[in-house]
Every structure is written in C-alpha cells, then in structure tokens.
Computed example of a mutant assay.
Amino acid sequence: MHIGHTGHGHAGHHHPAGGGSSWRTAALATLHCLTGCAIGEILGMVIGTALALSAGATVALAVALAFVFGYALTMRGVLKAGLPVRQALKVALAADTVSILVMEIIDNTVMMTVPGAMDAGLASFLFWGALAFALVVAFFLTVPVNRWLIARGKGHAVVHAYH
C-alpha cells in the first residue's frame, strides 16, 4: 500500500537507466505500502480481537481493511494530482495490489504462526510484539517484490507518472 505522495521527497528517487530499480526506491515504495497495510491490519486485528472474532474472521477483516486503507492512501495522492476518481482507483489498483497481497500473506502468516498471538488480548505484549514483528518481516520480504515490479514499470512505478 502506498500513502499519498505529498511532502515526502520523491524527487530523490533514483531509477537507473535501462528500467532498473534501486533498492532505495523499492524500500520507499514498500514503506508506503506498509503504512496503509499497517493501518488496516492493526485496525482489523484490534476490532477482531476486541469482538472475540475467530482467528480466520479477524484475519479476513484485517486483510480487507489493509486493502481499503492502502488503496485509499494512494488514491489521496493521485486525486491531489488532479486525476478523476475512476482513474485514481485504476492507478491505485495497478500500483498497490501485488504489494498489498504479498505483504498481507506474509504478515498474517507470521501472526498465525506465532503461538498464542491471535488469542492474546489487546493488552498483551505477545499480541503487539507479534504484530510488530509480522509487519517488519512483511516489509523486508516485500521490498524485493516491489523492486522487481518497479524495474518492469509496474507497481509503484505507475504512480510516478502523476507527480
């Protein structure tokens, strides 16, 4: 997921000649993705845990909200650049879908595999520690995916046309 592209210094992004992609660019794109994913993921985990939903229902809610917030944050930036809503949605879908999907698979897999994390309460260090760990793991494993996508003019690369 990517956040809106305002005030964070995109001018410093480096896109090597020949369509390559730097690790810095991929890391920044992934950080954008992580922002929306984390908002949705945390909100979904908090709501699901507070309502004592099953682990599966909580994960489904967290994933749905991660996509909503990821797309919304990207759309905010491209709408600000003057795109109509329909075009902004298309850009957000193209820019974020693969990144969000990979990040969500990784972070929810980590959450589900940390013993007791999904059943720990909101006041538990286990819950918050596992969630933070899951998001960090997802970030580091998604950076190479975003680097690959950007090098091919896909993913976050589609957003750059609207700066």
Rank of each mutant, 00 (worst) to 15 (best):
V68N: 08
L122W: 03
L65N: 00
V145R: 02
H2A: 13
A120R: 00
Y162I: 08
G20Q: 09
G129R: 11
A57F: 10
A38G: 11
H10S: 11
V137S: 11
H8P: 10
G129W: 07
A161W: 01
G20N: 07
S54M: 01
M75Q: 08
G12E: 14
E41T: 10
H10T: 15
L131F: 15
K80T: 11
G4I: 02
A95S: 13
L65Y: 02
V102Q: 06
A88N: 01
A11L: 06
S54N: 05
S124T: 04
Q87M: 07
I106Y: 13
A157D: 09
P115H: 13
A81S: 13
V158F: 05
T74Y: 01
W23P: 00
D96P: 03
V98R: 04
T6S: 12
T74I: 00
A52M: 02
L73E: 14
I100M: 09
L79W: 02
A151I: 00
A26N: 00
V137G: 11
V137E: 14
L43D: 03
T109P: 06
H5T: 12
V114M: 03
L51R: 11
L126E: 12
L131E: 08
L93K: 05
G12N: 09
L93C: 08
H14F: 14
G56K: 09
G121H: 08
T25D: 15
I47L: 15
R24P: 05
A138S: 14
G70E: 06
I106D: 11
T30E: 02
L126S: 09
A138W: 01
A55W: 09
K90V: 09
P16K: 00
L141Q: 06
H160Y: 11
G19Y: 04
A138K: 04
T49Q: 09
Q87W: 03
S54V: 02
M112N: 13
F69I: 13
T142K: 02
T6N: 10
A81V: 04
G48I: 03
V68M: 05
P115E: 15
M45P: 00
H8M: 08
G4L: 04
E41H: 12
A60I: 07
V145M: 08
E104S: 12
V114E: 13
G9C: 04
G12I: 07
